[in-house]
């Protein structure tokens, strides 16, 4: 464990310390790759600073116990909860608060069993896999089914709570889910709320941010919008946001995938044409405008 390896000191150069652990790199990467999410980024910066100071205090022998690092992420679908969880794991690993820094992402299915005696081994298996890293429980409120008193979810919750308390230095648990339902979940499981130190709320993206996200995704895939396509896509976003089942960045990704499909179809339709790199890279307005979203808009 690198915490113990670092020598005891009473003077620390903060800048050197920061560079040594290299979290600044992760934080700037977070700023660059994640668009919007201002409150989330501020919060993560705060947590990172706290942990950095905590690490120095440990070296100066001012503190011995591990801080509680369990978190809850609330926000609508597609607001980047999983992505941020991955980054948090990286930060914790660099600072020495998670030995391996891997993320085990689970939902109710992997934790709760189907018959008596099935739940405990199942939950424990997941916990063991996550030791040394971060356990990310997506849609955590499904663990608890208050309408069914024979539900095994409660058993999983009890094991989770016990390990969250007794093995704080081995495991960081992040619960994620939609805001209102998480609120209800915490209300019926007060044990969870008190064991979680950081509640982070993920806001929805604005239309401009969604466009920026789309551009970033396309850039990563080596595609680009033509000017008309960009203008059409702005209208697409405005229309899509008002429709049901909109899940922020995830919807944008799906929309882009469908546009790539239409672009490929359009190119293949004209077999006699010579294509250059620009043709294959750029999405045209027609690829965007063929979307079902615009159909609904008119009707």
């Amino acid at each position: 464990m690198d915490l113990d390896a670092s020598p005891m000191t009473d003077r620390v150069n903060l800048r050197e310390e920061l560079e040594a652990v290299g979290i600044e790199e992760i934080l700037t990467q977070l700023d660059r790759e994640l668009i919007g999410l201002k409150p989330v980024k501020t919060r993560i910066r705060e947590i990172a600073s706290l942990l950095l100071i905590e690490r120095i205090r440990k070296r100066m022998n001012l503190t011995t116990d591990t801080p509680t690092l369990h978190m809850s992420f609330t926000g609508n679908p597609g607001t980047g909860k999983t992505t941020v969880a991955l980054r948090i794991a990286g930060i914790l690993h660099r600072l020495g608060f998670a030995r391996r820094g891997h993320v085990v992402s689970v939902t109710r299915d992997e934790l709760v069993g189907q018959y008596i005696g099935h739940t405990a081994p199942k939950t424990k298996e997941v916990l063991k896999k996550a030791m040394g890293g971060v356990l990310f429980i997506d849609e955590a409120y499904y663990l608890n089914r208050p309408d069914n008193e024979r539900d095994y979810g409660q058993e999983a919750i009890e094991i989770l709570l016990q390990v969250m308390e007794s093995q704080r230095e081995d495991l960081v648990v992040i619960l994620a889910g939609y805001g209102d339902r998480m609120e209800k979940f915490f209300a019926s499981n007060p044990g969870f709320r008190s064991r979680i130190a950081h509640h982070i709320d993920f806001p929805d993206y604005s239309n401009d941010e969604l466009l920026a996200i789309a551009e970033l995704m396309l850039h990563d895939m080596n595609y680009k919008f033509s000017d008309e396509a960009r203008e059409a896509f702005t209208r697409y976003i405005a229309a899509r946001v008002t429709q049901p089942l909109f899940s922020n960045a995830r919807s944008i990704r799906n929309a882009l995938d469908r546009m790539r499909l239409r672009q490929a179809n359009r190119l293949v339709a004209d077999l006699d044409r010579m294509l250059d790199a620009d043709d294959v890279m750029s999405l045209q307005a027609s690829d965007v405008l063929a979307s079902r979203v615009f159909l609904k808009d008119k009707s």
């Binding site: 891997h102 081995d170 495991l171």
Partner: peptide
Amino acid sequence: LRDAAGVMM
């Protein structure tokens, strides 16, 4: 498993 803590538990 990734970390010995699970086995030790």
